[in-house]
Nucleic acid binder design. Sequence first.
DNA 1: TTGTAAGCGTTATCAA
DNA 2: TTGATAACGCTTACAA
Lengths: 335, 335
Amino acid sequence: MTLHDLAKELNLSIATISRALSRPEDVAPLTRQRVLAAVHRHGYTPNGTTRSLRTQQTRTIGVVVSDIRNAFFAAVVKAIEDEARANGYTVLICNADEDSAKEEAALQLLLDRKVSGVINCSTGANLDLLHTFQKSGAVLVDFDRESGLKNLDTVVVDNRRGAELATEHLVDLGHRDIATVAGPQHLSNARGRLIGFQDTLRKHNIQVKKSFVQYGNFRQESGYQAAQKLHSLRQPPTALFVANVEMAAGVIAFVRDKGVTIPQEISIVSFDDSFWARYMDPPLTVVAQPVETMGKCTMELLLARLRGGKPAQTKVFMPELIVRRSTCSPARSPR
Amino acid sequence: MTLHDLAKELNLSIATISRALSRPEDVAPLTRQRVLAAVHRHGYTPNGTTRSLRTQQTRTIGVVVSDIRNAFFAAVVKAIEDEARANGYTVLICNADEDSAKEEAALQLLLDRKVSGVINCSTGANLDLLHTFQKSGAVLVDFDRESGLKNLDTVVVDNRRGAELATEHLVDLGHRDIATVAGPQHLSNARGRLIGFQDTLRKHNIQVKKSFVQYGNFRQESGYQAAQKLHSLRQPPTALFVANVEMAAGVIAFVRDKGVTIPQEISIVSFDDSFWARYMDPPLTVVAQPVETMGKCTMELLLARLRGGKPAQTKVFMPELIVRRSTCSPARSPR
DNA sequence: TTGTAAGCGTTATCAA
DNA sequence: TTGATAACGCTTACAA
């Protein structure tokens, strides 16, 4: 069913039908009614794809998210979509699975669909594709990680500050043997979290042992493996800062397998909160990001940019330490 | 940058450019090279939206999901997207937030985008819109809930069986005062879970008290409230079957607030597993659905349908009871 | 091997 | 108030 069919049926021109639907006031009331009735009768819906061709704007925003199963991104996606829909935009969600090849495929898809803008949780690869976007006139926003490109809006949490908050908390409790499970260092957020951790230790004149820095990939299993390595050390840490909550779950799985008690034998603080962190055993001490606010802000920035004017800005949100029960002072050390 | 621009630059016709890209073998090697070079130089990407107009197929599948922040749906979406992309299809994800008005908006959007197919986690409302889809020739699949429409593929878990498994488990442990936090009864899955619960009790000659059936909306807070009501009863239950894990979290929040211990004072078994259920305090006994398999199967069914042939089928997956530590035999009752 | 031209379903301009 | 028509960017007969 197209405008054409409708026109034939009603003995009107397609122009009139189109007008009856998009600018009702430009059409005679009676005509409008006839059109509306027919539209309803047939369940006709204009082809939005075609409209885009004609109007040269898709009103679609692409979102490339690192891992849709990660609660953090799921929440962000929801916030983004709500804000977009409220403004008449559609969101095309792509899952990159923290994999630069999948990211490339996703960006290619968005390029193909001629999206008006892209919110990207960049792996740091695919800079050329991002560049192509910019050249094509699409608006780009970096979210959660910085791609390294210039002249684009950026929404991130203060990763260094978050790591400081977490590490400072552990130091305050009296820990000196503090390790970290860091994220992959090609990601700007993971780098920030590691630097914040190291700086805080140095500030307190605590040596940063190389063996106390383990690297994961932000996934659960890598947390498990990191914990394993840390555990096998001659002198294991008494406290642990984990760069995200998925890896923290992995750490906890390992620790539990070994029968080590949290927090008595090992204190754990993790980056990222999620609704279930407080139901865990024990409830997890975390550094929380203002997820909803960040998601909303990202879309607002993007829309503002689309409307023109505003130069690119970087918004840095403050994380917050939420102390629950996975951290406590270390047991008296024998040394 | 369009075919036209490229054609002008290379002194070729747009047809040749188009061919060089879509059927390389139909074009002289040298010409092809020149075209490819120019394409690369300009970062040109064909307009997929326009191609759809011409070829009359969008190769896009819409997915209307009840709540993207729910781990179950996040996992499903990932499985669906992977399978779709592997087959050259794009997925348009819409979040209905368990709200029929949002569902309507989502369906309308998908109608507008002329998607080839829709995977719908129906609220049960919007039957007329779904009907419009069918009339338009799009392929529909019901997932997780049945819309009530005929002649469409359906992928669900055996909800009754799952509830039986859970309830049977509680009965086996010796419980007689068993309550449930049921889901909203306009959803077929929630109905199935309630029926399975009731039937199992009856089978064991246990009376199903009306006050022992509380209704929630599949969200956390409603679990909290239901627990509150159950707790205020003159004779509260010793065991609880909760219809999904989000509500279970709410129940646990309440129970913990009250200082009631799980499982000693109250046993809890929930529908749905999620990776963190085993890290909870205590680890949650659940009825798990084979999420990835179900997601993949849904897309396979849809694609098969799109390729024609196959009549509509209903796939019912078997849930599995995973006993962890939130259930145990009831304490000796004083009565 | 390449070019010409029609047509996909809209919107928008101009005339009637 | 309505209609005829061009244009959006692409694919694909068909012709050269």
